[in-house]
Amino acid sequence: MPRIVVDVMPKPEILDPQGKAIAGALPRIGLNGFSEVRQGKRFELAVDGDITDEVLEQARTAATTLLSNPVIEDVTRVEVIDDGSA
């Protein structure tokens, strides 16, 4: 079944307490290779039938109106994936 993936990330200028806490924990378990962590969300919207332009447009609308809070988050990806690669 085809799906649309939506990625939502906190805006770069907005504090990301989640990412900060993880970034602090990584060196404590000996993983020193990372300078920053940002934590986002991934949504998968399943579609019955083909993904038309109209459905994709609906997904974009969902992404900006419901799935993300435009005040603090950016939608960074709205993309169709097929199950083979998921």
Partner: peptide
């Protein structure tokens, strides 16, 4: 602990 930001308890266990 650690705000439960990642998963509750996930960071503390280390």
């Amino acid at each position: 602990s650690y705000g439960d930001y990642l998963r509750a308890g996930a960071i503390s266990r280390f």
